[in-house]
Write a protein that binds this DNA or RNA. Structure first.
Length: 426
RNA sequence: GGUGAGCUGGCUGAGUGGUUGAAAGCAGCGGUCUUGAAAACCGCCGUAGGUUAAUAGCCUACCCGGGGUUCGAAUCCCUGGCUCACCGCCA
């Protein structure tokens, strides 16, 4: 959520900035709502003050044993008016809040302007795509060569966009998770978190998935109103919802491995082959909660932490900064890390690292008390995948494939796989 | 799942319809005293919204959430959540 004061005081500037990311703010309509709100709120509060005074007088009169019917009659004259004002104000504030909850974050000044994916800007590249002496296969074909990936069975059990893995591939998938968690906890200073996979609507509202993107989520039937998490970002960031932290507690760095569930409602027929885009996938997530002045440095570091995993695995990648039009709803700035997939002959997203500034914190009321200051301030939140596990497995398979269809195990992964060096073709 | 008891400010805890945004204690902050510290004493000490140039003043709201009764609700009623205890079931 944007700062309501900013929205009021610099409506046109805000509207301009939102336009760069393809969001049209109807500033005239907003201004009209805001004007009505102001008038109505002042009137309502004045009436409330009046009622409070009179009620107090009634109390005093009664305690003295005096007759209070005159004041009582007086209150009645504006009682109905007050009720009406309160109801109108409530409705109006609800309307304003709904509108504000649907406005995306403002892009940071350093974010390049653009409309879509094609306008993202490459920042750096690491590693060289390997030369194969043969036509490299994609992970689906490799999967059947080593006998470890089964989409037909997954379709029988659940439907499309699910996968079943067996044997060494399933083990490598698990090994990747261990490598990522160990790296982030031991080298990068994150605290490992185990958190719920089912969350309430308040949490989803806090991180920005609700109210606007409900169709992307799986909602449980039943009387409890719970959703499957689309990312660990939701439960982990919400750890600090409605909390006031001490300055000394910051920065907080959390990492968590969770499954992620996404309906992929809007993805049409994209990436239907293989395990690039699934309804269920594993991810190791990094979350940071920091002081505002440190958040952009934290974004650079966090991006580096995700890159470190790819470097350990020897997977070529590039980092792009998303343009204004391609960023997610809550982000002020986002780096995508794209890994090289020989099977597709292109770079594909494997991590997304974002600074949300105080956008999520305001929705969550996540604050800290600066040293020596009375007033709590909103903190800044960031997160990034470190990394998407399924896509990482795909990248390892495709980059480490050999002519006979076997797959070498990257050195960094071998300790997590009992020393296995090659997954043989069967 | 059943039965019962709870949920009040950073913490403990009083308050069952009226000048209560809320006693008291602890913690914290400022001061007096002291060479310094402790003790003692004095004062301050919740969050948000509105108005405003203002983090000044004034106003409003908030005692787990939502709804209701009333001129007036922390207090009464309904509903949801959570915590604790016991029973049942269970990895």
């Amino acid at each position: 959520m944007l700062d309501p004061k900013l929205l009021r005081n610099e409506l046109e500037t805000v509207a301009q900035a939102l336009k760069t990311r393809g969001y049209e703010l109807d500033s005239a309509a907003f201004q009209a709502l805001e004007d009505r709100r102001k008038a109505l709120q002042v009137e309502t509060e004045n009436l409330q003050a009046e009622r409070k005074r009179k009620s107090k007088e009634i109390g005093i009169a009664k305690s003295k044993g005096e007759d209070a019917s005159a004041i009582l009659a007086e209150v009645e004259t504006f009682g109905a008016k007050l009720t009406e004002c309160e109801q109108q104000l409530n409705a109006l504030q609800g309307e304003l809040r709904d509108l504000q909850m649907g406005i995306p974050n403002l892009p940071h000044a350093s974010v390049p302007a653009g409309e879509g994916e094609e306008d993202n800007v490459e920042i750096r590249k690491w590693g060289e795509p390997a030369e194969f002496g043969f036509e490299p296969l994609d992970h689906v074909d490799l999967g059947s060569k080593v006998g470890g990936m089964d989409f037909e069975t997954a379709a029988k059990i659940s439907g499309s966009r699910f996968s079943v893995m067996y044997g060494p591939l399933a083990r490598m998938h698990r090994a990747l998770i261990q490598l990522m968690l160990d790296t982030h906890t031991q080298l990068h200073g994150y605290k490992e978190v185990y958190a719920p996979y089912l969350v309430n609507p308040e949490s989803l509202q806090g991180t920005g998935q609700l109210p606007k993107f409900e169709e992307d989520l799986y909602k449980l039937r039943g009387d409890r109103e719970l959703y499957l998490i689309p990312t660990a970002e939701v439960p982990v960031t919400n750890i600090v919802r409605d909390e006031i932290l001490q300055e000394a507690d910051l920065p907080l760095r959390f990492t968590a491995h969770t499954p992620c569930f996404r309906s992929e409602a809007g993805s049409g027929g994209r990436d239907v082959r293989g395990m690039i885009r699934q309804h269920q996938f594993e991810k190791v997530e990094m979350v940071q909660l920091v002081k505002p002045e440190q958040s952009y440095q934290a974004l650079e570091e966090l991006t580096g932490h995700a890159e470190a995993i790819l470097q350990k695995l020897g997977l070529p990648y590039r980092v792009v900064v998303l343009c204004t039009g391609d960023m997610g709803f809550s982000a002020a700035k986002t780096y995508d890390i794209e890994v090289w997939l020989p099977g597709q002959g292109k770079y594909r997203e494997i991590s997304s690292c974002s600074n949300f500034e105080d956008f999520q914190a305001r929705r969550m009321q996540a604050r800290y008390r600066p040293e020596g200051s009375k007033k709590p301030e909103l903190l800044h939140s960031l997160n990034g995948s470190g990394l998407a596990v399924g896509r990482c497995l795909v990248a390892v398979m495709e980059n480490y494939q050999q002519a006979d269809g076997s797959i070498r195990v990257p050195e960094a992964l071998q300790p997590y796989m009992g020393g296995v060096e090659v997954i043989p073709a069967v």
